[in-house]
Amino acid sequence: MSKPGTALPQYRHDPDDTHPALLSPDYRSTRLRAPLRTPVDLPQRLTEVTGPVLGDGLVQPEDADLTRGYAGEPAGQRIIVSGRLLDGNGNSIPQSLVEIWQANAAGRYRHDRDNWPAPLDPNFDGMGRTLTDGDGRYSFTTVKPGAYPWKNHHNAWRPAHIHFSVFGRSFTQRLVTQMYFPDDPLFGQDPIFNAAPAAARERMISTFSLEGTRPDWALAFTFDIVLRGSDPTPFEEGDS
């Protein structure tokens, strides 16, 4: 336990134009699931500024390559998705768990409740995990996911995306987001992408990286994830 009176780091609140509104009626499922009462401010004490150490026994090196683990290669465009996990102060977040899940190249998830008529891929389960390295970097090898239809509105299609779950260092930094691909023609009709404030949407779009490609093997996209930064405290200065 920290000593009484020890200054705790305090994580800055994100500006209003950062995250989607919980009630975003164009995304129909929010209508009965979004809390409607004004949330109560919870001061950041020890529980909020600490967070779990995850990884031991949970992550194997091969978990970062979604094209392995089965008898054959999955169908589709092989891609490398890499980037950095950072905080709002520009500091990298090392040794931190990154989880991803995605549809296969045909836009089908390996899930009981996804049964639209696109083929499953016997060589692809769409799940990946890794820990960031000492510089906060992560890298996954996978295939580019396909777009898929859903029932939200007539002729609704999700733009191709990869789900990302990250922890950072503290409970305050916990984030689940989605990574999109550049210039997707489906952005305009997607209420989930567009639920994010206009100025923030581009921060969910990965960048094509020619330098990151592997010749005769894979295309590459980069995607940095930024979690809330904390204001410096005397406490942090000697803590490195």
Partner: peptide, 15 residues
């Protein structure tokens, strides 16, 4: 740096 926006886990989060 500005924070990444949040998105839903979607229906297939168990994967």
């Amino acid at each position: 740096l500005l924070s990444s926006p949040s998105q839903t886990v979607g229906p297939f989060l168990s994967i």
